[in-house]
Design a protein around this nucleic acid. Sequence first.
RNA 1: GGUCCCGUCGUCUAGUGGUUAGGACUCAAGGUUUUCAUCCUUGCAACAGGAGUUCGAUUCUCCUCGGGACUACCA
Length: 560
Amino acid sequence: MSQSRQRKPDAHQARRVPFGIRRARNRPSGRAAVRRPSRGLIPCGGSRADIFSSLGSVSGTVSESGTMSSDVRVRFAPSPTGYLHIGGARTALFNYLFARHHRGTFILRIEDTDRSRFDKGALAEIYESLRWLGLDWDEGPQAGGAAGPYVQSERAALYREHADELLRSGKAYRCFCTPDRLDRVRKERERAKAPTAYDRHCRNLPGGEAEKLLASGTPHVIRLAIPDGRTVSFDDRIRGHIEYDASVLDDLVLLKSDGLPTYHLANVVDDHHMRISHVFRGDEWIASTPRHILLYEAFGWPPPVFAHLPVILSPDGGKLSKRKGAASVMDYKRGGYLPEALFNFLALLGWSPGDDREKMSRPEMIQAFSLEKVSPKASVLDEKKLAWMNGLYLQDASVDSLRGTVVQWWKDAGVVGAEAGADDPHFAKVISLMKDRSKTIAELTENAAYFFADPAAYEEKAARKHFKERAPELLRTLARALEQAPSFDHASLEEIYRAQAEEAGVSAGKLIHPTRLAVTGVSFGPGLFELLEVLGRETVVRRMHRAAERVEKGKSHHAE
RNA sequence: GGUCCCGUCGUCUAGUGGUUAGGACUCAAGGUUUUCAUCCUUGCAACAGGAGUUCGAUUCUCCUCGGGACUACCA
């Protein structure tokens, strides 16, 4: 019995291993463990990497107090074809956490080799999203760095050189097949229910034919010649050993006929030259990884460590899409979530610190982050839980840190004028009153409307309960008392109400509820006396008289 | 069709051969509060199925089922 109680701390201790060592997942690999010194994971060599040699090789293990930087270099490599998807953001986040944990380098690289799908707005949104989440990159566009440029369209010559190199060594070949023929072959294979891989038609063109076609300017691509009779395997850091039979791999296109590289070539070349040590990317890349490994082999480069992250699903189990609600980082910003909360929530989607902690500061997450605790399983984004966590952050946030954002929301909602200043002390009071009882800034904005405009209607159910026929008289009596109150702070107001209640021989609630409804139109909200104080005497008295009139005119049961 | 990945409460997860399978969100009930929210207490709720290995499987192996990815001169 005591045995099992003691297991937990022990297990926890055992998890604190240097980053370069991990146990294997329980995949059908027959391998007991994947243990490699960190240094072996770092791609090195290759002429272009020489400029980095001054960095030398330092230990990848970071001591708790150490400030030593490591050889860990990771990158987030989005394609600027659309908004930054929340799943992509999570991938970026894990890269970031890993880099910071190991005091390594977090790189941003833009993969814009598909000219037809390039979208300038998308690129701007990616930067904005990353910055908003606080995922600052050490190298990349807008940040610079020795391995630049970090935009692939600016590196076209480099890819061509490397494609040529492979051509010369016979590891790649020119393919003159027309899209038409490719299509035809594929369809035939589909019909025959055979693998749809490219049939390698151009791999062994009869002598001289390739040269002839080339000389005549026939459009062509460059394909990697996948070797026969091989198995290709790699040890995915979160999935364990994965093995492919090379015969199922097709001769992938390296260089397109427009002279630009495909993802595969650009990715491998850049990861090598940028000395990327660990590649964390979405799991849709798993099937391409063996081809990438073969490409590294063809170049004679050691591959980086791979870890494929699971996807984030919508509550219905499908892909998260705009159609179903929020899918991009900016959607969540527009939804009124705090970046710190989203960061925390996203970190916990697919990763856990191994204990029960949920709300964690960024340094805590960085400290605790480890690949071993990353789950291979796709996860569903539960907005209810996100809202809960956001509420926690809203409570803990200072009014000062919130006021800029919140006041902007109010302006956008039209509840305050565009000329309003965020430093208005009145705004600060409203925020401090409302932030603890709101889950999002959107909700805070909605619930704070009565601070800026008299209620247009009274909550029906509450009106039936609190606006009985004696209400007008009651409200006017209270209004008079408030008019004469020597001071309009919440403590004095409470005294007045308690005294009035005692005088009338009723519970304070009998006065409080009608007052709240009269001044806000709703039956819930902050403590009444703090509320009245912030609203101010004039507003309160006016609204109470107004409510009294409305009750008399029988308009009180207008639904809101 | 082929190849690969994944499978613990509704959801996020802990768990690495022996646990009353733990926590969190949601939901429900109660308590605190002038209301709401917070907070506190309690409750509902899971190892996809089947074989095998083992004294013993949530945990290891295999199969089935279910979900997903890839199978572009897109990433």
